Amino acid sequence: MQQVVDFVLEIDKLKHVTRKTKPIGLDRHENSAEHSWQIALFAHALAPHADSPVDISRVVTMLLVHDLGEIDTGDTIVFADIDWEAAKRDELTAIRRILGHLPSETAAPLIALWEEFEANESDDARFANALDRAMPALLNLNNQGQSWRENGISYDRVVRRIEAPIRDGCPGLWHYMSARLAEANEKGWFGA
Rank of each mutant, 00 (worst) to 15 (best):
A45N: 09
P103S: 09
I77Q: 07
D51S: 12
E116F: 04
Y155E: 11
G100Y: 02
I71Q: 01
Q2S: 13
E70I: 00
S147P: 03
E115C: 06
R149F: 05
E70Y: 06
S32V: 12
F79G: 00
S36D: 12
P136A: 09
H29S: 08
A192M: 10
G74T: 01
N129C: 12
W84L: 04
A164L: 13
V78G: 04
D6A: 15
R133S: 12
G25W: 11
A45C: 03
L138R: 02
K13M: 09
A184K: 00
R161C: 07
G172C: 08
S57L: 10
D75F: 14
V60S: 11
P109D: 10
R126K: 15
L14V: 13
N142L: 06
K88A: 04
P23G: 12
N120E: 15
Q38K: 14
E10S: 07
M135H: 12
Q2P: 02
G69V: 09
T73V: 04
E30S: 15
D168V: 05
A107R: 12
Y176H: 10
R58P: 00
I77D: 07
E186S: 13
E105L: 11
G74E: 02
I95W: 01
W148Y: 14
A108W: 06
V17F: 09
W148D: 01
A125K: 01
E34R: 10
K13R: 15
P109N: 10
A45F: 08
P103L: 07
T61G: 02
S32L: 14
G172S: 12
S52I: 03
D124S: 08
L92K: 08
L41E: 14
L9E: 14
N143R: 14
G172I: 00
A108I: 06
L139W: 14
S147L: 04
H49N: 08
V60Q: 09
D83N: 15
L68H: 01
R161L: 08
A86Y: 05
A43T: 04
A87W: 00
W114K: 02
A184L: 06
E10T: 14
I166L: 05
A87T: 00
A50Q: 11
A87G: 00
D156K: 14
L110M: 15
E10L: 04
I153Q: 05
L14M: 13
N151G: 07
E115G: 03
G69L: 03
T61K: 13
E118W: 02
E118F: 02
I162N: 01
G145F: 04
P136K: 05
D12S: 13
N151I: 04
H66T: 04
V159F: 08
R28I: 15
L64S: 03
F7M: 02
V4H: 07
D51V: 06
R167S: 12
P53R: 09
L46D: 00
K187D: 08
W189I: 07
A86V: 07
I162D: 00
D51E: 13
W84R: 10
M177R: 04
L141E: 09
W148Q: 02
Q2N: 13
R160H: 13
V78S: 05
Q146Y: 15
R161D: 06
H29P: 00
M1R: 08
D124H: 06
H16V: 03
D27E: 13
